[in-house]
Simulated scan of single mutants.
Amino acid sequence: MTDEDPRRGLTLVLEAALSSAAGDYNVLTAARAAGVLTAQTGDQFFVALERLVERGRGAGVVRDDLVPDDLRRIMAMLVSVLWTMDPDEDGWKRYVALVLDGLSPAAATPLPHPAPALRRRTL
Rank of each mutant, 00 (worst) to 15 (best):
A22V: 04
R119P: 05
A106V: 09
G60S: 09
W92T: 00
A31N: 08
L66Y: 00
R94C: 03
V36N: 03
L111M: 15
R55S: 08
P6L: 14
E89I: 07
G102D: 02
G23N: 14
D43Q: 11
L18C: 09
R120F: 09
G102N: 09
L49G: 05
G42W: 06
R51Q: 14
A115Q: 15
R8H: 10
A59V: 00
F45P: 00
L37R: 04
G56F: 11
Y95H: 14
V67W: 08
R55G: 03
H113A: 15
E4P: 11
A107K: 10
L18I: 02
R63K: 08
A108R: 11
R7L: 14
L103I: 06
L100K: 11
S80H: 11
L10Y: 03
V79E: 12
V47H: 05
G58V: 02
A31R: 12
E50M: 06
P87S: 05
V53C: 13
G58E: 15
L103Y: 00
T29Q: 14
P105H: 06
L14M: 11
D101T: 07
M75F: 10
P116S: 12
G91I: 01
T122P: 02
T29A: 15
T41A: 09
V27N: 15
R63T: 01
V62M: 03
L12H: 11
E50H: 05
G91E: 10
D69S: 12
D86C: 04
T122F: 04
L52Q: 13
A39H: 11
L52C: 06
S104Y: 07
T41G: 04
A117I: 02
P87D: 03
L103A: 05
V61N: 01
P68E: 12
L98N: 08
L28A: 08
D5F: 06
A115R: 12
D24P: 00
A21M: 06
W83V: 14
R120W: 11
G56P: 06
P114A: 10
V36W: 07
A76E: 06
V79C: 04
T38H: 09
P6F: 07
R121T: 14
L18K: 06
T84N: 11
D24C: 14
A115E: 14
G91Q: 08
A33K: 10
Y25Q: 10
V81F: 02
S19Q: 08
V27F: 12
